[in-house]
Design a protein around this nucleic acid. Structure first.
Lengths: 160, 160
DNA sequence: GGAGATTGTTATATACGATGACAATTCCGG
DNA sequence: CCGGAATTGTCATCGTATATAACAATCTCC
């Protein structure tokens, strides 16, 4: 069993433009490559829309998840986001440091913390939610509403 | 102008499973989130299929691009992949170190190198191409052929 | 010919995630 | 109810991939 390399990462802070005069070979036929280009485009749109909120997609996801599941443990947060416990802790530290989230002891399990949005956190989530929705709308403006729904459906189906 | 945070990265080496009993809130409606889940799934499929070849998606892309554009400069390679010159150089170093690619002086420009696949590189690209195509086929088996084409089309349209 | 852009290179910094260890606590089979 | 196994949060450490900034050599264009 070989050790897996690090996952495929969108690295660009600028759109990945097609370079004129360059042939892309088999890349043009591959879902993986198209997926990455689309993700970089969405990331940039996200970043533009949330500039100044100090947020990133993982942080946004974490806040939304905590908001939707009060009392969630850090381990479960990590599982939901697909990261290790240690990473979930750093994320929680960040949220707590900004007073967006509180750690409360759980009566049922003295090992675990329960994560809860503060009032401040809830307000920020709402602000972010609007900004992100706008970013989505702007980027997805390249598609019709029906195409957007279809794309969402196909992505879910592909990811399983 | 705030400094951009690092781009949205798929971090998981395991599929991002839905955790039962957890609500995903607004995330379920967002293209960005669906895109990431799909990309992680494709990355895992890629990794499984190319295990042992010591390859990653960026390296694969770089080799394909060099193969399709003999004599390409490192700067252009970086532009195509959407990374900085310095990163393109590391990628080139890796390819040259494995004797998959040669740097040849260009008669028209003494600053730039021209990158060329070696015979060994061309053979590896062909082997990889087959493995990656198989990975795509296996993962995209969740979709019909028509759905796969439609997904590709929508992703291209979204990325612009 | 010279100013300014481009190319490759190097050094440095940063961000994010994994891994592996640890103590406290909980769970579970007997 | 007891003791081993699993889980939780924490910490220290490592690895990878990126960016940025500087530099010399070279090219472009006026």
């Amino acid at each position: 069993m070989s050790k897996p390399p690090s996952p495929h990462r969108p690295r660009a802070l600028a759109p990945i433009e097609r370079v004129p005069g360059v042939s892309y070979g088999v890349l043009d036929e591959l879902l993986g490559y198209a997926l990455r280009r689309a993700q970089v485009a969405m990331f940039l749109s996200f970043h533009r829309a949330t500039r100044g909120l100090g947020i990133t997609p993982p942080r946004f996801s974490a806040l939304v998840i905590v908001g939707a599941n009060p009392g969630l443990s850090q381990s479960t947060l990590g599982a939901v986001l697909g990261i290790a416990r240690s990473g979930a802790m750093l994320l929680a530290d960040w949220m707590v440091g900004r007073r967006l989230v509180e750690r409360r002891r759980r009566p049922d399990d003295a090992r675990a913390w329960g994560l809860h949005l503060t009032r401040r956190g809830a307000e920020l989530v709402e602000k972010m939610r609007r900004a992100v929705a706008q970013a989505e709308r702007r980027q997805a403006a390249r598609l019709t509403a029906a195409e957007r729904r279809e794309l969402l459906r196909l992505l879910e189906k592909l990811a399983g």
